[in-house]
């Protein structure tokens, strides 16, 4: 495979806008934003130029930490940010298009914010009861 090199670097949440600006100045394209729920929340911002792909990792301890939206720099990021808000309950400030939690309407609020149950064969017949998210 001659796949482009992938680099991972961790940055502090406060430096997010600065880093995004630098990526934009370098001519990168926003590829995706991915959130993972481990014991903490981990966000990966991926930027790509023709032959490289860079991932910026941001770790936040819980979903109450609000992150700045990068939609003023990358106009298309609102889709990812709204998605992460609805599935993980993380708040983004200053989104250019804000769905107020109605991007994905799910039976339970922030369903993906539950930490994974590793290695358990997971026989889980009890489905969570639908609750309405207070908006």
């Amino acid at each position: 495979m001659n796949a482009p090199a992938q680099t991972y670097s961790e940055i502090a949440p406060e430096r997010l806008l600065e880093a995004a600006n630098a990526q934009r100045a370098a001519g990168s394209r926003l590829v995706q934003i991915c959130c993972s729920r481990l014991q903490h929340f981990e966000l990966l911002y991926s930027f790509s130029r023709p032959h490289t792909i860079e991932h910026l990792r941001i770790c936040i301890p819980d979903s109450r930490v609000a992150l700045p939206s990068i939609s003023s720099i990358y106009g298309g990021s609102f889709a990812y940010e709204n998605e992460i808000h609805d599935l993980y309950g993380i708040t983004f400030t200053g989104m250019n298009v804000d769905y107020q939690g109605h991007f994905f309407r799910t039976a339970i609020p922030a369903p993906m914010a539950v930490p994974p149950v590793c290695a358990a064969p997971a026989p889980k017949p009890n489905k969570p009861q639908p609750q309405k998210e207070p908006t």
Partner: peptide, 19 residues
């Protein structure tokens, strides 16, 4: 383990919604 921590797919349609 046999169970992954995270699987994510970013599909082309999702990226094409803002345009």
């Amino acid at each position: 383990t046999k169970f992954l921590d995270r699987f994510r797919v970013r599909t082309p349609t999702f990226a094409n919604i803002p345009p």
